[in-house]
Design a protein around this nucleic acid. Sequence first.
DNA 1: CTGTTAGCGCTTTCAC
DNA 2: GTGAAAGCGCTAACAG
Lengths: 338, 338
Amino acid sequence: MPTIKDVAREAGVSIATVSYVLNNKGDSISAPTRALVLETATRIGYTPNVTARNLRFSRTGLIGYAWHEAPSNTMNTVLDQFIYHLAFAAEAEGYHLLTFTHPTDDPTPVYDELIRTRRVDAFILAGTQEHDPRIELLQERNFPFACFGRSQTDRPFTYVDVNAEQGVHDAVSYFVELGHKRIAMVAWDHKTYSTSLIRVRAFQQAMQTHGLSADLVYYGEHSEDTGRKALQQWVQLPSDEQPTAVFAISDLEAIGLMSEAQEHGIQVGEQLSIIGFDDMPLSQHLRPALTTVRQPIKQSAEAVMENLMALLANSDDIPEPVMLMPELVKRKSCHAIP
Amino acid sequence: MPTIKDVAREAGVSIATVSYVLNNKGDSISAPTRALVLETATRIGYTPNVTARNLRFSRTGLIGYAWHEAPSNTMNTVLDQFIYHLAFAAEAEGYHLLTFTHPTDDPTPVYDELIRTRRVDAFILAGTQEHDPRIELLQERNFPFACFGRSQTDRPFTYVDVNAEQGVHDAVSYFVELGHKRIAMVAWDHKTYSTSLIRVRAFQQAMQTHGLSADLVYYGEHSEDTGRKALQQWVQLPSDEQPTAVFAISDLEAIGLMSEAQEHGIQVGEQLSIIGFDDMPLSQHLRPALTTVRQPIKQSAEAVMENLMALLANSDDIPEPVMLMPELVKRKSCHAIP
DNA sequence: CTGTTAGCGCTTTCAC
DNA sequence: GTGAAAGCGCTAACAG
């Protein structure tokens, strides 16, 4: 592999000159020399060694991103999409993503190691927790990072999040417009998912706004089965207490809900309206096609990168949080009360 | 951030000594000096700069892996799982994954650039095509790589693949055991997916082995809808020509098939047996739970890394291809012919 | 046993 | 206009 030295030798100039030409620096290179260097470089197929450059500038061109756990059994499509768009957005800015994994219960050592070895220039965090030890670490180390998802912290930090409250509100309002009064929700256990807390609160608030009671909330883990169990429970209720509409915290739960309802002979749509959250790729293909709150994942990824770039350009001033609006995608799983 | 110089100064020794101690080289460092250096290093919090080390060794500790396209609309769970396990396997070997994207139609320039800039030490390719331009490029450049998936090439290369033939054979044999004779298949267009060709051929072969005709093969793109369309077509057939069992090239098509069948009032399992391929996380939750051919994704990722490590250790001898066995996971979507 | 030094490939200040 | 040389942080011959 040719180095800058080879180019210099071939062109009969010094390595400094080659560097100047290639970087358009030192505006005092004669046109002929410049042309000669350029020609020689392409001729012998020279490309700068990125590691050497990195050493010089003490940067890496890498952004660290941790894998969310165990995609083997849970189907975390949102983050799958996020990382893909993130990779794109990073490349648009001349960066690459360095992906890594860490134990669920103790993520910080890996972050610390990556910082200490100067393996990456910054981190992007997704799936942030209410009190996220990673954020604390990064703030303490004064290391650049941007988040997808909010968190409780003492010091401000830059993040992008989806206005789930708005999405939940839209979903509930839509149900109400259709004449529903008994509206239930399937949620996750708060302990494990802070996202759930936000959405449940938004649900309660929205219901209250419409003068409805939010007493039908079923809690479970993130799984298709949770939707099933919720329905099984509600089906036991006296018929006038049974929900006519259900808002599911994610499409996965909505799918479980749908199948279980169908097995109970309940017509989803006609007899039971369902709205999900996330707009999984599969959701539009369900029968009935699932009405759901779609998160703007691509825009989120782009916004996170944008924030990070701003931070990297000027580490003193932390970009303001960005809130993106979700969109209620109306399909066939909701009908009006006759 | 402290450097080796700082340690040397603090400990009152030369940087060479520090380096020796830290790398356990030059077995001639006195115990006291060694202890002193070690103590100083931890005291001032020294960690080697990985970029400097990389420059010295002309390595990067990075393995390039290209994102499969557009996870936004297709649900490519297999590769999603693969990359996750790959990240794990890479870290076990002291590497990290550098992920990148490229245009579908023209991947090679990005690979070329990554090679020329020496951004990565090797590549891992997944979703290999019949004639893969990436493989040609890497072979020509003499750059280390390992594949998940076979391909047609002049020169040998190292790869890991799942013995799809065996999986298809098991599926068909299972149908036959259950008494099925009219067995259909949903497949992908060959042009776009070489994987499909392999599975279709295996299907035809398996059918032939059992003395059955493989005339019921429906071709479509990789989508849930393809399963639906296949069923719609078969339903038109005279009843004695309709399939009693269907093998779907992937679970996604099986899901479409199932829903469509159910909408036609066909009892999946009892009246129509279905087997999928891949064992998507959702598949076990379907009703009936889907019988499917599970690919050993984790083992595949580990085997690919193992091959790559062997190649990196000795680039002269290309590790033999590895064939992993899939497993027929029997659930509820297949019943015996009465 | 430990230190001096060259060098990995590149950028940039300072001289000429 | 161009080149010599220092230096980014680290390793490893080679001296002593």
